[in-house]
Amino acid sequence: MNIENLIPIPALCTHYKVEMSFFNNLSEMGLIEIKTIEETQYIHPDTIYEIEKMIRIHQELAVNIEGIDVVFNLLQKIDDLQNELISVKNRLRLYES
């Protein structure tokens, strides 16, 4: 992957006013994937939306890393259930027609 397409974590630390350890802890919990190139850590830009949500949860609600993991697992389950419900509703419409 090209470095130009990645976001350096030190820049995110400065921008969002969080410690580097926050990102390392998120990575250890499996919430984000960090790529290290030439001793600099980077994230993929597609994950920035999720990272911003994690930072807001951490800063505004004072939720620790383990709590963020629980919240994101629950949000993923809700999303899966909503998708399943949409699928079931669509199949039901076929039988009702």
Results as ranks from 00 to 15, higher is better:
G67I: 01
P10D: 11
N83Q: 15
Y49N: 10
D80S: 12
L74T: 03
D80E: 12
F72V: 04
G67P: 02
E66C: 05
I86A: 12
S87K: 11
L31P: 05
I51A: 07
E52A: 13
T47S: 15
K53S: 08
I43R: 03
I9Q: 09
E33F: 11
D80R: 14
I32C: 07
I32P: 03
T40H: 00
M29N: 09
T40P: 00
E33R: 08
Q82D: 10
L74F: 09
A62S: 09
N64K: 11
M29T: 07
S21W: 04
M54R: 13
L61D: 02
L12E: 09
I57D: 09
Y16V: 04
I32M: 12
M20A: 08
L12I: 13
K35L: 11
F72S: 05
L81R: 15
V63K: 07
N73T: 04
I65C: 01
N73M: 03
P10K: 14
G67T: 03
E28S: 15
T36R: 08
Q59V: 09
K35E: 08
L81D: 11
L92H: 07
M29H: 13
H44N: 12
A62E: 12
E66H: 11
D79V: 06
Q41S: 15
R93V: 00
E96F: 10
T36W: 01
E84H: 11
Q82M: 12
H58E: 08
R91K: 15
N2W: 02
I57S: 10
E28W: 05
G30Y: 12
E38Y: 01
I34V: 15
R93N: 04
K77W: 05
T40Q: 00
E28H: 09
S21R: 13
S21V: 12
D69L: 00
I7D: 06
F23V: 01
K35A: 06
Q41Y: 05
I78F: 02
S27W: 09
G30K: 12
Q82K: 09
K77G: 04
D79W: 04
L61N: 04
L74N: 05
E84C: 04
G67R: 03
L92N: 13
T14Q: 14
Y42M: 06
D69S: 03
Q41T: 13
R91H: 13
I48K: 15
L85D: 12
P45M: 01
G67Q: 02
S21L: 09
I9N: 08
K77P: 01
K89S: 11
L75W: 00
E84S: 10
T36G: 01
N24V: 15
L6Q: 00
Y49E: 14
Q59M: 09
L74P: 03
L94N: 01
V70P: 00
L26R: 03
L74K: 13
I68L: 13
R56M: 06
N90E: 12
I3A: 02
E19P: 08
Y95E: 03
T47D: 13
I3K: 11
E39K: 15
D69Q: 02
I51F: 02
M20T: 08
E96N: 08
E52T: 06
E4L: 06
L81S: 12
I43K: 05
Y95V: 07
L6H: 00
I34C: 03
